[in-house]
């Protein structure tokens, strides 16, 4: 098996995932036995795989630095207690990691390393009580909520509860990521102390217009 075939057919990863045919395994291993560079690639792929699993599955720290948001998102949604008990999970954090696709202009994002990441999972209910969250003052927040089934595209809008229909922030054409979750990033200045509502609209398969899915009330207080 030559290196070109190995690279173009992702043989190393497929070997580790158990996806090769018997013939491919034989050819691959015959080379693996002597090819040091290939062994290095296998080592690297194993480390990457194990590292990603370790980070995304077991990181339980409540606060972590830039880059950790991705980890926490998956961790939260992987915990059955959260998934079963809550009608949605709402988390707030500051990071540049998840925000690239959420900025309307795409040019006002914080740079890597500027911001600490803080994420606060809040469990909302189907009751009329607003979700309460405390956020420290910082530049960006990310709201995470689960994406209801049956929709292919989502739009999230945030407005103050007392300000009628004035939309403070809106994010369109969102696709669910990370275990059917949605991440809505916005500048932190939008979420000052006060009562808000996040309006979630969705497009069903084949639909051209959005329909209202739910309105999620939440209250923001500044941390000390």
């Amino acid at each position: 098996m030559n290196r070109n075939y190995i690279n173009t057919h992702l043989v190393v990863d497929r070997y580790l995932r158990g996806e090769l045919t018997e013939e491919e395994i034989a050819r691959f291993e015959e080379r693996l036995v002597w090819d040091q560079a290939l062994m290095d690639e296998v080592d690297l792929a194993q480390k990457l795989r194990a590292g990603i699993r370790s980070v995304l599955e077991t990181d339980e720290s409540a606060e972590f630095r830039h880059g950790g948001m991705v980890d926490r998102v998956v961790s939260l949604f992987s915990v059955p207690a959260y998934a079963a008990a809550a009608s949605f999970l709402l988390a707030v954090g500051m990071t540049s990691v998840l925000l690239t696709g959420n900025s309307p202009t795409g040019n006002s994002l914080p740079t890597a390393g500027q911001l600490a990441t803080e994420i606060v999972p809040l469990y909302a209910t189907r009751s009329t009580d607003a979700v309460a969250m405390t956020v420290s003052e910082d530049a960006w927040r990310v709201l995470l909520l689960d994406a209801p089934a049956g929709y292919t595209m989502f739009r999230a809008s945030v407005r103050r509860r007392e300000d009628g229909d004035e939309v403070l922030w809106s994010r369109d054409d969102m696709l669910p990521t990370y275990l059917e979750s949605l991440a809505v990033g916005m500048p932190g200045r939008i979420l000052e102390e006060g009562a808000y509502v996040l309006i979630l609209d969705g497009k069903a398969e084949g639909a051209t217009a959005y329909t209202r899915i739910q309105e999620i009330a939440f209250v923001v207080t500044q941390s000390q």
């Binding site: 990603i52 699993r53 370790s54 980070v55 599955e57 972590f64 880059g67 950790g68 990691v97 690239t100």
Partner: peptide, 25 residues
């Protein structure tokens, strides 16, 4: 694990990070 975090943080496109998560996790 720290290296993985740095890797994810260095990937500017969410879809790319999503790809890794889906493929490896």
């Amino acid at each position: 694990a720290a290296a993985v975090r740095r890797l994810l943080a260095s990937m500017p496109i969410q879809r790319d990070r999503d790809l890794l998560t889906r493929y490896y996790l």
